[in-house]
Nucleic acid binder design. Sequence first.
DNA 1: CTTGCTGCAAAAGTTTTGCACACGT
DNA 2: ACGTGTGCAAAACTTTTGCAGCAAG
Lengths: 160, 160
Amino acid sequence: MELPPPSSSPSDTTIIQPLCSIFRRFLKNRGLKFTTERALILDAVLSKDNVFEVDQLLYEMHGQGVRVSKATIYRTIKHLVEAGIIQEVLLDSRQAHYQLIYGRQQKDHIINVDTEATLEFHDEELIERIYAICREHGLDPVGHRLLIYGTDPNRPPESE
Amino acid sequence: MELPPPSSSPSDTTIIQPLCSIFRRFLKNRGLKFTTERALILDAVLSKDNVFEVDQLLYEMHGQGVRVSKATIYRTIKHLVEAGIIQEVLLDSRQAHYQLIYGRQQKDHIINVDTEATLEFHDEELIERIYAICREHGLDPVGHRLLIYGTDPNRPPESE
DNA sequence: CTTGCTGCAAAAGTTTTGCACACGT
DNA sequence: ACGTGTGCAAAACTTTTGCAGCAAG
């Protein structure tokens, strides 16, 4: 297992090398190819430090002059999910949202329903409790998704 | 697939009358009309005791000879959500899922990723903890959505 | 009567797929 | 070389909308 040592570069580059290797190995194991496009998409995903959508990725890549098709992004996203590098996050039922999970604590989300802003948090104790409930129901927990909806307590109620 | 209830007579459901009134009042307050179709759709929704999709509703209603269009179901569903009678449930990001909430404890879901079966549960203490976390982050909790993914512990791992 | 509602079909938005050609191994 | 990937455009699917006739209040 040869992980290139992390360079002394800024935080965002530290996980690029290992993730590249991981993804490459994942692809190799299945007889798939590590193409230029897949590398570029992985780069774009790593540049996101919050939840993202496929269209966003495409827009940003095109903005940087990277030529890649939406179809390829969709196809690559699936592999990244299978490789355990990113994860689908349920935020609404119209469009898929993803987030990087490799090397990160899984985050849960609090959604401000007034502003649509999302806040991330992580509470280990809560997750333990959630997984215990899962076991009590006879299943081995493998993941979870928690959204909390809240309103700004200082915002006066809308006149209707 | 699930079996429809043996009888189509709504007598067994004690909440039909109050819900009818509530929905009617809700519509009246906004200058909207309580039409035959809206009544029929409310009936169909009340007959579901689990999560449902719009297509399912349409299919079941057509199966019972009720003539209603998909567009009308979509339009009515929106009003039912606004009226606080049903709620959107995030289960996947391809299709909207709904469930009746009026007169019920809100349920959370455990999803068996092997079989896709969903199990419902309600844990008051857990919800209190979730809402406390929301308040700690400065928002008044108004709702939440929790999905737990699990695997059957007796199922051997897939050979790959 | 007035205004909103319905069904239909077309539109809109996201995701998938078929195909011919290009590229990684 | 072989088999997989890519881009494009069309298809597939869910949800929304415009419109002409219909029905509730």
